[in-house]
Design a protein around this nucleic acid. Structure first.
Lengths: 210, 210
DNA sequence: GAACTAATAATACGATCGTTCGTATAGTTT
DNA sequence: AAACTATACGAACGATCGTATTATTAGTTC
C-alpha cells in the first residue's frame, strides 16, 4: 500500500512543529502572553505573517502551544511511570519522574503548566478553560494511580486527599527551585516529604519501592 | 510640637497609595507584566505621564507594587496569626489565616506572590530577586513559627521539612481554587491535609487547637 | 505678591503588539 | 503546460507599550 504524501503539507507540518517546539520553551519562561508572534518569528528566522497564518490568531497559537506542552509532559512524566507495574511502585515512579521533569528543566522555565495555570488562573476564556481541563486530567491520573495501589492493598489512604498532597509537593518543589535559581536541594526535600507520606500510608508488609 | 505637613507631598502620597492599591489588584490577575502604565492611568483617571513620574520606570513600579502587596499580606496573613500565643496554636492560626486570605480573595487574582513568583521565577533581574527574598522571608517565618511549637514540646518535626509541606498545601489550594473558578471546596481539602499532618506531628497530650 | 518647589498634565517618540492584505513560491493534479 | 492549492513572505494597519520633554497647576516660603 503506497502512501502518497503531499510535500506541501509535510513542509507545513515541519514548520508548525518547529514553531511549537520553540513556543513551549518561550512560554515556560515568559508566559503565554509573553509569547509574541514577532519574537517567535524572529527567533525561528521566518516571516511573522507566515507564522501567523498557521494559527489564525494568537489565542489559537496559545492553545496549540498548550497541546504541544501536554504531549511533552505525557512522554516525560506519565510514560516513564506507566512502565512500572500499577501499585505503590507506580505512585513512587510518578513522583520521581515528575521531580526529574522539573529538575531537568524539560521546559527551561520549569513546569510549563504550573506557569501557565498561574498566568491564566484568574482570567476567563478558552485558554483558562483548557488549562483547567488539563489540570483535571492530571489530578485524575494521580488519583487513579493511587487508587490502584489502594485496591491492591498496598496503600491505605483517601486517593483524592493523597493526590492533592503529592501534587502540592511537586508544584512547591518546582516553584522553590525556580526562585532559588535552580537550587536542586529542594527536590531532595520534596522527595523526602513524599516518601514519608507514602510510608505512613503504606500497609504493613508492603515492600517499599525506594 | 507642631508637625508641618506639605500639602503637595500629601497629595503625592495619596496618589501613590491609590495607584499601588489598584496596581496590586491588576497585577494579581494579569501579572506584573500585564500591569501596564497606560491601563493603570486610565482606570484611575489620571494622566499616564503623571503616574509615570511617581516611579520613574516600569520596573520601579513593579517593585513598589510588590512592596505594597507585602504590606497587605503582612496585615491579612501574618498579623492575625501573631495575635495567637506561640506554639501549635499559632501554626494552626497561620494556616487558617493563609487559607482565608486566598479564599476571601484579598487580591482578586488569588495569592499575589504565588502569581508573581511564577511569572518571574525563571527570569533574572531585580524583580525576581526581590520576590525570591520575600519568599525566603516568608518560609523563614513559617519555620520559626513551627520551631516555637517544637521548642514548647507541642510538635515533633523538622521545621524546615514541615514548613515546606504546609506551604505546599497553601499554594496548591490557592491554585486549584483559581483553576476551578473559585471553588471553595479545595480549601476544606487543604485544611484537612494540614490538620492531619499536624496531628501526626503533635506530641502526646498536646491540646489540639481545632 | 514674587520666587520657588512638587505634583500633574499634554504631547510626542520609537518600538512592538496582533492582524490584514496582496503577492510570490513550491508542489500537486489534470 | 495549465489550473489549482498550500505555504511563506513583505508591507502596512491601528493600537498600545515604556519613556522623555516640555508646560501647567497647586502649594510653600520668603
Amino acid at each position: 500500500m503506497e502512501t502518497r504524501v503531499d510535500g506541501r503539507l509535510v513542509r507545513g507540518d515541519q514548520t508548525r512543529r518547529a514553531v511549537l517546539r520553540k513556543a513551549v520553551d518561550i512560554a515556560s519562561v515568559d508566559g503565554l502572553e509573553g509569547l509574541s508572534i514577532g519574537r517567535l518569528a524572529k527567533e525561528l528566522e521566518i516571516s511573522k505573517s507566515g507564522l501567523f497564518a498557521h494559527f489564525g490568531s494568537k489565542e489559537e497559537l496559545q492553545l496549540a502551544t498548550i497541546r504541544a506542552a501536554r504531549r511533552i509532559y505525557a512522554t516525560s512524566v506519565v510514560e516513564p511511570a506507566f512502565a512500572v507495574e500499577p501499585g505503590l511502585g507506580r505512585v513512587w515512579a510518578l513522583s520521581e519522574s515528575w521531580l526529574e521533569y522539573s529538575k531537568r528543566r524539560v521546559f527551561p522555565g520549569g513546569c510549563f503548566f504550573a506557569k501557565a495555570s498561574h498566568e491564566y488562573g484568574a482570567r476567563r476564556g478558552p485558554v483558562h478553560d483548557f488549562l483547567a481541563e488539563v489540570n483535571r486530567e492530571w489530578i485524575q491520573l494521580v488519583e487513579q494511580t493511587i487508587t490502584e495501589a489502594v485496591d491492591r492493598g498496598e496503600l491505605a489512604a483517601d486517593p483524592v486527599q493523597l493526590a492533592f498532597e503529592l501534587n502540592a509537593f511537586y508544584d512547591s518543589a518546582n516553584m522553590a527551585s525556580l526562585l532559588r535559581d535552580g537550587d536542586g536541594r529542594v527536590y531532595a526535600q520534596a522527595r523526602q516529604s513524599i516518601r514519608a507520606r507514602l510510608e505512613a500510608a503504606a500497609t504493613a508488609g508492603t515492600a517499599l519501592p525506594w
